[in-house]
Write a protein that binds this DNA or RNA. Structure first.
Length: 337
DNA sequence: TCTGGGGTCCTCTTTCTC
DNA sequence: TCTGGAGAAAGAGGACCC
């Protein structure tokens, strides 16, 4: 979906259409938080996802800042996903505003299917999306990004050399800021240059798993299937303090609250868990985690809170704390009738 | 001075168990 | 009983994705 959160807000508040809209945090650009989505008008000012709200505000004082309203975006997301599933039941969810659809078993021409999807999404939600059609997920994802917004891009294996190889390595799924910087230090800027490296060299620099992945991905090769069913492996809650703190009471109280929230969450979704992890981010952004695995699966708030405090006690709180979080791992679905 | 929250997966090291 | 090793599980950290 194109600038999804911002587009949903512009749809339900038409007076925002054509204006720079920034969605993030609790909608207050003087507080801590980052941009989740910026409307295309806001992007003209250099505002983009993951940017601190305060920075976004400096770039554009006139932008309209709104809090993230997940309930509403989920509601619209469901409408979109239902349309996709009607077109083809083989759908992989990729977060709230993206999905892969396997249309290889569908009779119609792929381009016709894409146009139908666009029309139905626009009819039922008033929103636009960008679609990529390709022989695999890796290429379809790149294709969907090539003509935004409201784009439709079709790629075949024949296009890899001419259209994929000139692209910056950062366009490859799995290549983030660290890998990009590392590759650039090796003199590798484009996907084509990445494809010129031998598999031995890649494995030497990036390890067996990621090295092999980069070798295939740079050639447009991806055999990964669509994941149509998914079970969560962990669930968590974390919060950043408005001001870094060294007050143990504040930290402990917040951790207890987060534990309650995460347990409520598990009760609602019907999961028990076995491993409790506490995470602390200090003022200097150093992150420390401590974990404790329990004897059995639990959903008891008492047990989870107790384990969390044992973990917290193992963390040296000498520096000011920026964030505290709790995660419950090794989830197991509770049998319910 | 600024840098969210909710996830997954990978790697390396330590600890446990046989 | 001591020692060593293999393999699994746990723990910690880090990169990446939306």
């Amino acid at each position: 979906m194109d600038a999804f959160f911002a587009a949903v807000e512009q749809k339900r508040h038409p007076e925002l259409i054509g204006k720079p809209v920034v969605i993030g945090g609790d909608g207050d650009p003087t507080k801590r938080g980052v941009v989740s989505t910026a409307s295309y008008e806001a992007r003209k000012f250099g505002i983009h996802s993951a940017m601190p709200l305060r920075t976004a505000y400096k770039l554009c004082h006139d932008a309209i800042f709104l809090p993230v309203d997940y309930r509403e975006y989920s509601r619209v997301s469901k409408i979109v996903k239902n349309i996709l599933k009607e077109i083809s039941p083989i759908m992989e969810d990729v977060g709230i505003d993206e999905a892969f659809l396997d249309i290889s078993q569908t009779e119609k021409l792929s381009e016709e299917i894409a146009k139908e999807i666009k029309k139905r999404i626009n009819d039922e939600t008033g929103l636009t999306c960008s679609i990529g059609i390709a022989p695999n997920k890796l290429l379809a994802k790149i294709a969907s990004d090539m003509q935004k917004p409201d784009g439709l891009t079709i790629l075949t294996e024949k296009d890899i050399v001419s259209l994929i190889w000139p692209l910056d390595v950062r366009k490859l799924w799995g290549v983030g800021p660290k890998t990009e910087a590392y590759l650039k230090s090796m003199g590798i800027e484009t996907i084509g240059e990445l494809a010129s490296l031998t598999i031995d060299k890649l494995v030497e620099h990036f390890g067996k798993s990621f090295g092999n992945y980069l070798y295939s991905a740079s050639r447009g090769i991806d055999e990964s299937p669509l994941i149509t069913h998914w079970e969560p492996k962990s669930t968590s809650r974390e919060t950043t303090f408005q001001k870094d703190t060294d007050n143990w009471q504040t930290i402990a109280k917040t951790l207890a609250e987060l534990a309650k929230e995460v347990v409520d969450d598990m009760r609602q979704t019907g999961y028990t868990g076995k491993t409790v992890t506490v995470k602390v981010k200090f003022h200097d952004f150093k992150i420390v985690t401590r974990a404790k695995t329990l004897d059995g699966y639990t959903i008891s708030l008492d047990e989870i809170r107790k384990a969390a405090f044992e973990c917290l006690a193992r963390i040296e709180l000498k520096k000011k704390v920026r964030l505290i979080g709790i995660r419950i791992g090794k989830l197991q679905k509770t049998i319910m009738e």
